[in-house]
Amino acid sequence: MSSPFPLLRLPRLVLFDVFKSLSIGEKIKLSICSKKIYTQFNNARLYSQKVIVALDMHYQNIKVYSEDYKDRFEISIRFIIGMSNDPDVQQYQIEGRTVLVTFYLERITTFWKDYQEGFLSVIPYLLMIFRGKIQTNTYYHSYQSIISELLDLQLEFRKLVIEFKGLKHQNLRFNQIFNKLELVEFLSISSIPGPGFRPVFTSWPQKIIIRSSDWFTLKSLLTCTCNTITLTGSHLGNEDLDEIIKKWKAGGFPNLERLEIDKLRFTNNGEHILGVNWRRELDRKVIQTEDGSKKATIRISDRSIEMSITPFE
């Protein structure tokens, strides 16, 4: 079969099966052959491979992984300057933009006028070919607007890492991000905001971990709808914990499956939680909601508490 193969004349379901047989990199390389092929990938998306689209902000790469991490492909985002005379560069269309591309075995490099244009073109492009969610493992303030715009496009994040380091004042972009957290599965916040900046949670992810969480107030925690809450370096105390558990018993935190708080400010002078001495009587105690629908096992060690919740059988 030496003559060119009429791929798009195949029955649609057969074409989708051909797509399924290709690796992530082959799918991406084939999709940029023509808009017609990209459209067919888009049509086949409901049946397409599930992937993780990982943003590597440090090296300006987008890594696409299969869910089992056995198959992967990388797309580098680079500035266009100085590339036009490179003989290996080829020109293709991505998201309606003409882009220079160089090919390697397990990656391609794409050249853009700036990183923002590159990330905001390539990520939606990929998520029209594959079913998947975005993941970030590091955070740079310069990427704040990219993340905000991806959330505005209603694209879902598997994991989002945020740092406040260096921020001294209220930040509009952060407010926009915190307004769309229902699109985030797992949010990790790993630094303390400056004194002039307090993020306001107007939506919540499914899971949240806040490191150095002394800035995260009881008032915020009481509005949290996450199913997993982990606070390290917290400054909450006995009374706060008493209020949290009482709210849960009364039917609050309806989604909560696991709560972990460490560096609690427990006092050792006989103060009580739920009317019992927290050190002697609360560890390993099983409590239940007032309506009897759920139970929680409490573990206390040193200055930390874990609460694992299961429905009553």
Partner: peptide, 28 residues
């Protein structure tokens, strides 16, 4: 039979970059 045919077509594209893929397939 259908899946073997699909695999055979996929093999035409395997290990190729976009430019090489364009040579292997015709676009209507």
């Amino acid at each position: 039979l259908t899946s073997y045919c699909c695999e055979r077509i996929a093999r035409m594209l395997r290990g190729k970059n976009t430019q090489e893929m364009i040579k292997v397939i015709t676009l209507p």
